[in-house]
Nucleic acid binder design. Structure first.
Length: 433
RNA sequence: GUGAGCGUAGCUCAGCUGGUAGAGCGCCAGACUGUGGCUCUGGACGUCGCGGGUUCGAAUCCCGUCGCUCACCCCA
C-alpha cells in the first residue's frame, strides 16, 4: 500500500536553468577558482563577499531601469514586510554599494576587490547560459586613470593564459562619457533614420528604442549597412579620446593582442569610456567569456561620492566550458591511499593507520571489512578510486609488524613498518606528482 | 517572450514503412577462496517522459502536456 503510493510521487528536480555541479566536475571549478584567486591576489586584489539578496532599487538605479536585465530578467519578490528584494543579476552594483556603505572612500587611494559567486537572471537557458550562473569579477574603485584599465586587462590576459585558453580574443572599445555619448547617439539616430528601410525588423525597432543595440545585429544582410554607420570612436571628446589611446597604447606596449570593436556596446547603463569583452571560439552562440568596462558615474548614481571605477565580470560557467574544451587544465584527481584490510585483528591497526595518514593531509579511503578471500575485490575498489597506493593489512601483516604497500601504477609492492609508513608515503607523494 | 530538435536500461544510443525492446559502457557474480587494471562466462536492471486518441495490436502514427537541448532576444 505504502509502496504503491510512493511510486506515484514525482521526484523533485532542480529548477529550470539551475544545475547541480557534481564531482568530478567540481574539481575543475575549484581549479579555475584557485587560479583566479592566485592571479587576482598577485595584482593585489582582495576578496569581497556581498549578499546574494539586495534591495531591488539597487539594480534599477545601476544596471538601468529599462535594460532587459531589469525589465524582464530579475528574480524580484516582495518580502514579508513588503520590501522589494531581488536576487542579484550581477555584482558590480553590490560591490559599489558596499564601498559606499562602509565608507571605503574615506581612506583615500584605490580599492581593488574581487568576488565570485552565483548570479540570477530569468532567461531561457541555452549553452553557456543559465538562470543561476556564476561570475568571477574584479573591480578597481577610486581611480579614473587609464593605467588602471590596462593593468586589469593585463591581469585578465594572464588569467586566460594560466587557464590554457590561448585562443581567446580581446575586443575593446570606448563608449564615451556622459558628455560625448549623447551627442553620438543623436548622430547615430539621424543616420539610422536614413537607412532604416534596409535593416531587419529587429533593427528598425532598436533604431528607435536603443540605437546602440543595432550594432549587436547578426543578420548578414544588415552588416554592410551597419558598417557604414557613424562610429562612436569618431565622436569621443578629447578626454575620452586620450583615455582610449592610453589604453590601447598600453596594450600594445605589453604585447597584449586586441581588436578595436566599434560595435562593442555593453548592455548595462553604467558603462563609460573603456568597454571590453573577451570571446572564445569554443563556446557556441554565447561566446563572451567575460566583459566589463569603466563606470565612472556609478557610485554617484547609487548615492555615493563621485568615484570612478573599472571592472570585469567573468562568466565562470563559460570559462569552465572553455577550459574543458581546451583541456589544458587538469583537476586534481584520485586518492593517495586505499587501505585494504581483512580479518578482525586488522581492524584496529587499519583504522589507526587511516587516521594517521589523514592527519598528515593524505587523502585516504578505508571501507567495510572484506573477507580474506576477496582481497582482489578491495584492490578493485582501490583501482576504481584511482588510489596511488593500496595498503594491505591482514592478520599476517599485523603479526609480522609490516604492511604491504602496493604502488597501484607500477604494481610494485613493498613491506613497510607502520611507524615508517607516513614518511614512506609522503616522500613518494612529493616526488611522484 | 519566440522558434526548432529531442525524450527508450545508471550512461551513450539503436529500434526501417505499427506485431507488446536491443547494443556498448557501467554495475553484480564466477573463472581466480591474500593481490586491481586485461580476457572470458553468467546475471540484475525498462511505467519506451506523461495523458488521451487511431488500431485486432502503438516505443513506432495523431493530439495534448511536461521536461531537456539548441537557437533568437540579451548577456557572463
Amino acid at each position: 500500500m505504502a509502496e504503491e503510493a510512493r511510486k506515484k510521487i514525482e521526484p523533485v528536480r532542480s529548477v529550470k536553468g539551475t544545475r547541480d555541479l557534481l564531482p568530478p566536475a567540481t574539481g575543475l571549478w575549484q581549479r579555475v577558482e584557485e587560479e583566479s584567486r592566485r592571479v587576482f591576489e598577485a595584482y593585489n586584489f582582495r576578496e569581497i563577499r556581498t549578499p546574494v539578496l539586495e534591495e531591488t532599487a539597487l539594480f534599477r538605479r545601476s544596471v538601468g531601469a529599462d535594460t532587459d536585465i531589469v525589465t524582464k530578467e530579475m528574480y524580484t519578490f516582495e518580502d514579508r514586510d513588503h520590501e522589494s528584494l531581488t536576487l542579484r543579476p550581477e555584482a558590480t552594483a553590490s560591490v559599489v554599494r558596499a564601498y559606499i556603505e562602509h565608507g571605503l572612500f574615506n581612506d583615500g587611494g584605490i580599492h581593488k576587490l574581487y568576488y565570485m559567486g552565483p548570479m540570477f537572471r530569468r532567461e531561457r537557458p541555452q549553452k553557456g547560459r543559465f538562470r543561476q550562473f556564476y561570475q568571477i569579477g574584479a573591480e578597481v574603485l577610486g581611480s579614473d586613470h587609464p593605467s588602471v584599465d590596462v593593468e586589469l586587462l593585463e591581469m585578465l590576459a594572464l588569467l586566460v593564459e594560466r587557464l590554457g585558453l590561448g585562443n581567446s580574443t580581446l575586443l575593446v572599445n570606448s563608449v564615451g562619457c556622459a558628455r560625448c555619448r549623447p551627442e553620438y547617439v543623436k548622430v547615430l539616430k539621424r543616420a539610422l533614420e536614413g537607412v532604416k528601410s534596409k535593416l531587419c525588423a529587429d533593427c528598425q525597432r532598436r533604431a528607435v528604442t536603443n540605437p546602440l543595440r543595432v550594432f549587436d545585429c547578426k543578420v548578414e544582410a544588415d552588416q554592410a549597412t551597419i558598417a557604414g554607420l557613424p562610429r562612436i570612436l569618431d565622436y569621443l571628446d578629447p578626454e575620452c579620446r586620450q583615455h582610449f589611446e592610453f589604453v590601447t597604447a598600453g596594450l600594445r606596449d605589453r604585447s597584449i593582442a586586441y581588436t578595436i570593436e566599434p560595435r562593442l556596446v555593453r548592455g548595462l547603463d553604467y558603462y563609460t569610456r573603456t568597454t571590453f569583452e573577451m570571446t572564445s571560439g569554443a563556446l557556441g552562440a554565447q561566446n563572451a567569456l567575460m566583459g566589463g568596462g569603466r563606470y565612472d558615474g556609478l557610485a554617484e548614481m547609487l548615492g555615493g561620492p563621485p568615484t570612478p571605477g573599472f571592472g570585469v565580470a567573468i562568466g565562470e560557467d563559460r570559462l569552465v566550458l572553455a577550459v574543458e574544451e581546451a583541456g589544458a587544465l587538469r583537476a586534481a584527481v584520485g586518492l593517495d591511499a586505499y587501505i585494504a584490510w581483512m580479518g578482525d585483528g586488522a581492524y584496529g591497526p587499519a583504522t589507526k593507520l587511516a587516521r594517521d595518514l589523514r592527519r598528515e593531509g593524505l587523502s585516504v579511503e578505508i571501507r567495510r571489512p572484506t573477507d580474506a578471500a576477496k582481497l582482489k575485490k578491495s584492490l578493485g575498489v582501490a583501482s576504481k578510486l584511482s588510489a596511488r597506493y593500496s595498503i594491505i593489512i591482514g592478520e599476517d601483516e599485523v603479526a609480522k609488524g609490516r604492511y604491504q604497500v602496493k604502488d597501484m601504477t607500477s604494481g610494485q609492492q613493498e613491506e613497510v613498518e607502520p611507524a615508517r609508513l607516513v614518511a614512506y608515503l609522503k616522500v613518494r607523494m612529493g616526488t611522484g606528482g
